[in-house]
Amino acid sequence: MNPLETRGTSRILLWVLLAAAIVLYGFPFVYLLLTSFKTPLDAIAVPPTVLPETWTIDNYVAALSREGVPAALVNSVVTAVTSTLLSLVLAVPAAYAITRFRTPSGRVFIVAALVTRMVPTIAVGAPLIAVMRTLGLTDTSFGLALAHTTISLPLSIWLMASFFEAVPDELSEAAEVDGCSRLQAMWRVVLPVVSGGLAVTAIFAFLASWNEFLFALLLTSVRAQTTPVVIANFQSQFGLDWGGMTALAAVYSVPVILLTLFLQRHIVAGLTLGAVKG
């Protein structure tokens, strides 16, 4: 087989694998989307059908007009944006300091940050409720965003640290020689270089908050309840409203899909940052 044929076969194999991966990952979401357009009986058909027998938007109308749903959607956006900003504001200087100064305490800190990811969320449920109550932050989006930041911050620090590692020290040193302070060097020189990494970190932090369920369940009641909790309410002990649940889940997926598409270029750039270090 000549090299051209080998390359052609590899390309076909690659496309087959790619198609399989897309089907594997995409089918559940497509099925969710299609179910959201089914009638109640169609949604529970035995055996299940892929395409709706009769297309309807009744599930969307019912789900979006359900009490608490519009407020929950707004709460989700506010909480996720706040948590993402908090994560970035805290993670960027922490990661920068760790990678630039390389002190033993910095190394301990970054490992300790990772260890916090290993504690099951439910284990900190009761203490967190007590802390938030003491601070007067229960059932507030800010309180929930703070809780979500405890989840996303360690990951954000690690991600940003790996992106900063890819930037040569000489760059910030040169900026300091030219009169920048350390913070100015970070802000004016290093951060623009790792903007792709920032986008990746932001989207991970946003998704961590956007999809989080347990803290939202424990820390909110009415005012700050987010959409994952409201979606779960479609399943009660007395029945499961597949149509309503899938319709709201589909609506809730739209912002993250748009965000990912919008930041796609940065994400790809961020993920490959460091691959050509040197």
Binding site: N75, F142, R223
Partner: peptide, 9 residues
């Protein structure tokens, strides 16, 4: 985020 937009409860 200081509050939340749902009804007080």
């Amino acid at each position: 985020s200081g509050c939340g937009v749902g009804a007080s409860g």
